[in-house]
Design a protein around this nucleic acid. Structure first.
Length: 556
RNA sequence: GCGCCUGUAGCUCAGCUGGAUAGAGCAACGGAUUUCUAAUCCGUAGGUCACAGGUUCGAAUCCUGUCAGGCGUGCCA
């Protein structure tokens, strides 16, 4: 059962009945019925402000409209009580039996509870992290990884087919600089004189790459005499090294990409030039002073953007358009990109490009994973890849663990500028909210272990829902009823943090239940009823944690 | 200058796309365990929702302006 949908049905039918009986004029333009969850429990399970919104049109007081609807609403068997209060809210209270029946649904569906099957699944591509292959992944990438993977999980739970994708920027200036940096380090190790490139990468890992290449490819690169060719060779090797280590870090973070897409491959296959002619055919590109310029301003951007420089080299934008054209060609219904905050100025031009290629506006969405301030000992740590002074995702995983790290990133909305307190996350791991969730799950498992020890067999005993007629049990059941729609709306709004907030509430509800009620007792009917309840909680917790990519331990 | 994000309890942040008396965690203080795991629970305290207008039955939420912080504003990626 779904509270909102059920309430919507009841209200709209009640309105129809009222119209049929002449309470409301049949030609009135009534507003759309909206259902809300009241903040206060005593305001009902669901409520609607329909009478407030229709008062003007019907030229009647909201209270009297509510009173008219009340008799029709209370005729529904799911509804125990209807209230019309204060300014004109209609509050609905569901019957105890209706609510308790939902437990059967949860226990029956088990690990599928909250997961929807669609007749026509959407094919969704979600691209995230896509960090430059010039070094280890940093904290911002870790945040994007946690958010992107969780969002993908949620969209899958909503019945869609989701491909996770990583775009490798293995082309252009940065990569050349990486090659130069590696060359300098190789010469250094060999005791030869070498100037380190001014804009180069100073991190320790560059030395490791240099050593790695010396150990494995010395015979190959020594044959290359042309400096430019050598740098290119080293760059390719270094990129491969970095991509592999990024892939490993991400897999250890429970993130697996279906596709690693190389930017370089777009250039080599001719897709980039093909995309240019495609845009030219559509009249979206013009030439000026030897450059080719995309008419971004015609598609919502502030100004037009260069796609081919006057020396003939394509810009990053053109490659990116080619990349997204490839995604379109692969037949996705929806395309989602998650970018870092430093790219937000780029959204307008790429969305413009999508529009110019005729891709439906609402189907392309760029989300920004906002910055992360790493806080240590109450001081903000500045992160800079080039200066080599940054905290890596690898360090994060090693320090605080995957579960805690993922949870920290997911529990905040992605557009908030996150202060990540490393000392706290490390030091006080027992106070960490993620353990609170996991502990709830472990506690329930512990109850079942004890039940088994006592030889209690659930299937042999009857249940009696009257044992659930207490505030703690009712609170839990009502909350669990809302899980599927929580998953749905988190997917619709692309807000994974809602799931973590929801699970927090559920764990809270359970811990409270646990202190108030004893599950195992001599009364086998009561025991069996309670076991069904906590089993449901365990199912929902586990399903929710699975969405977040966090483990649900059976013991702690 | 222009654009994007943010501003809510001492700190970190929620607030279900406009609802009723603004919430949680942490930190502080006081209490609870002969019981299925105390990594738990209960209570107390803590607020000019940055500020000023506007929209309406009703605003933390929407519109305008101001202030503050961050980021962006390349023929870099």
């Amino acid at each position: 059962m779904n509270f909102k949908i059920k309430t919507y049905e009841i209200i709209t039918q009640s309105i129809e009945n009222a119209v049929r009986h002449g309470k409301f004029p049949s030609d009135a333009q009534l507003p759309e019925v909206r259902i809300e969850y009241p903040r206060e429990q005593h305001h009902g399970d669901t409520s609607t402000s329909f009478s407030l919104e229709s008062a003007k049109i019907l030229r009647r007081s909201p209270m009297s409209i509510g009173e008219d609807l009340k008799e029709y609403i209370s005729a529904f068997k799911e509804i125990e009580r209807v209230e019309v209060v204060k300014p004109g809210f209609i509050n609905l209270f569901f019957s105890f039996e209706t609510i308790c029946n939902s437990l059967d649904e949860i226990v029956r569906e088990k690990d599928k509870y909250g997961f929807i099957k669609k007749d026509k699944p959407e094919k969704i591509n979600i691209e995230f992290v896509s960090a430059n292959p010039t070094g280890p992944l940093n904290i911002v990438s870790a945040r994007a990884a946690a958010i992107g993977d969780t969002l993908a999980n949620i969209l899958e739970a909503n019945g869609n087919i989701v491909d996770r994708e990583f775009y490798i920027n293995d082309f252009g200036n940065q990569v050349r600089l990486l090659g130069e940096s590696v060359l300098a380090r190789i010469n250094e190790i060999k005791g030869e004189k070498s100037e380190f490139p001014e804009e180069g990468y100073h991190g320790q890992y560059v030395k490791e790459i240099a050593q790695f290449i010396i150990d494995n490819f010395e015979n190959e690169y020594e044959k290359i005499t042309d400096r430019k060719e050598l740098i290119d060779y080293l760059a390719v090797k270094a990129v491969r090294f970095n991509v592999e280590s990024q892939r490993k870090d991400l897999e250890d973070f429970n993130v697996k990409f279906a596709k690693w897409f190389s930017e370089r491959s777009l250039h080599e296959s001719g897709e980039v030039t093909a995309t240019l002619s495609y845009l030219e055919e559509r009249g979206a590109v013009y030439e000026k002073e030897g450059r080719k310029i995309f008419r971004a301003a015609d598609y919502g951007d502030d100004k037009d953007r260069v796609v081919v420089r006057n020396d003939g080299r394509p810009t990053y934008l053109l490659a990116d358009i080619a990349y997204h054209r490839d995604k379109i060609k692969r037949g996705y219904d929806r395309i989602i990109d998650i970018w870092g905050p430093d790219h937000h100025g780029y959204i307008a031009r790429l969305s413009g490009a999508m529009r110019s290629m005729g891709f439906d506006d609402g189907k392309f969405r760029v989300l920004i994973a906002q910055q992360v301030n790493l806080v240590m000992e109450d001081e903000t740590v500045r992160m800079s890849k080039r200066l080599g002074n940054f905290s890596t995702m690898r360090e994060l995983i090693d320090e605080i663990g995957v579960d805690a790290a993922r949870y920290f990133f997911i529990m905040r909305s992605m557009e908030s500028h996150l202060d990540f307190d490393l000392t706290l996350a490390k030091k006080e791991s027992s106070e960490n909210p993620v353990f609170y969730l996991q502990y709830a799950h472990a506690r329930i498992c512990s109850i079942f272990r004890e039940a088994e020890k006592r030889g209690i067999d659930l299937s042999r005993h009857n249940r009696d829902i009257s044992y659930l007629n207490n505030p703690e049990s009712i609170y839990l059941i009502k909350l669990m009823i809302k899980f599927p729609e929580e998953v749905y709306s988190a997917g619709q709004s692309c807000e994974p943090h809602r799931i973590s907030a929801y699970l927090m509430k559920l764990a809270q509800g359970f811990h409270k239940f646990y202190t108030e009620h004893r599950v195992l007792s001599d009364n086998l009917t009561k025991t069996s009823t309670y076991l069904t309840l906590v089993d449901s909680v365990r199912i929902v917790l586990k399903n929710g944690l699975r969405l977040l990519g966090i483990s649900a331990p059976e013991r702690m």
